[in-house]
């Protein structure tokens, strides 16, 4: 049994409660530089604890990798963040003010958490451009859809996203003709046009070629900063390539946290990975 870890230290130069600012209800507030607060989360399936008093903080703009053996609870954690699974106890806050355990999936997505599932689902018969357009933040009602036109700003955002995911030259191609890796990037693009503040990527390079992995790593690194990115990945080389802080999950709780080299030297981590 592992002791629950104390909360991660707050960013330097920061005194809790010192700043005075207006809190807008329903809006993301990252004035304390932390975008995700998960404290004491427990999720039990028929008595089995998939998450066991898990505590984790992610900073605004941070790139965080989540690793851990099969069944450690990584996917369950993402399910809790996106509202797909409700925790049995513990708290989950998005910024200072948004209680994720009280919001439904749509509200959480609307608030700025985007999740990429493992299996890419793009609209195969629509062009890459149209895929991005369909995903973009806009009026979703039937009424507005007949005369909807892309204004210059929206068009600009799509072009920028196309450049980011490096599919600009394929914008007019039906998405079904893309390679597996390109479809994954398009799906990341479909998240980006929704302007999320926190991106959750579950095994983003599964099934990719080495070259595609490298380009995906570049893409993910470039995404952090303007938004926070939480990546679940098994491939240690890929995690090393991303840099950033690593959190090791084991049996539903945080086992170790820090830079990858430090975590890899941690005897408890070695034991978990070797004892498998």
């Amino acid at each position: 049994m592992i002791e629950p870890r104390p909360p991660a230290p707050l960013p330097p130069g920061f005194a809790p409660g010192a700043s005075v600012h207006a809190v807008r209800p329903g809006a993301l507030d990252v004035s304390h530089r932390v975008i995700l607060y998960l404290e004491d989360l427990t999720v039990a399936f028929d008595g089995f604890r998939a998450l066991n008093r898990l505590t984790l903080y992610v900073e605004a703009g941070e790139l965080r990798c989540l690793i851990g053996p099969n069944g450690a609870g990584k996917t369950t954690l993402m399910d809790v963040i996106t509202g797909k699974t409700r925790p049995d106890s513990g708290t989950a806050f998005f910024g200072q003010s948004l209680d994720l355990t009280r919001m439904d999936e749509a509200a959480i997505a609307e608030a700025g958490i985007g999740r990429k599932f493992q299996k890419p689902t793009v609209f195969e018969r629509h062009s890459v451009f149209d895929n991005l357009e369909l995903a973009m933040k806009a009026d979703r009602r039937v009424r507005g859809s007949f005369l909807a036109r892309l204004d210059g700003e929206a068009r600009g955002r799509i072009d920028e996203t196309l450049r980011t995911i490096r599919l600009g030259h394929l914008a007019r191609r039906p998405a079904g003709t893309l390679s597996h890796g390109q479809k994954q990037w398009l799906e990341i693009g479909m998240l980006l046009v929704q302007e999320p503040k926190l991106l959750l990527l579950d095994e983003p390079v599964a099934g990719m070629t080495d070259e595609e992995r490298e380009r995906t790593a570049e893409l993910i690194v470039s995404l952090a900063g303007a938004r926070s990115v939480l990546v679940v990945e098994h491939d240690m080389d890929f995690v090393a390539r991303l840099g950033g802080k690593v959190t090791v999950l084991h049996e539903g709780a945080v086992l170790a946290e820090g830079p990858l080299e430090q975590v890899q030297r941690d005897p408890r981590v070695i034991e978990v990975y070797l004892g498998r």
């Binding site: 689902t121 609209f123 195969e124 018969r125 629509h126 149209d130 357009e133 369909l134 039937v142 859809s145 007949f146 005369l147 909807a148």
Partner: peptide, 13 residues
């Protein structure tokens, strides 16, 4: 129209 693109997207996925 965008309506049509959403409709065909519904057809496919």
């Amino acid at each position: 129209s965008r309506y049509g693109r959403v409709l065909t997207a519904i057809r496919d996925a």
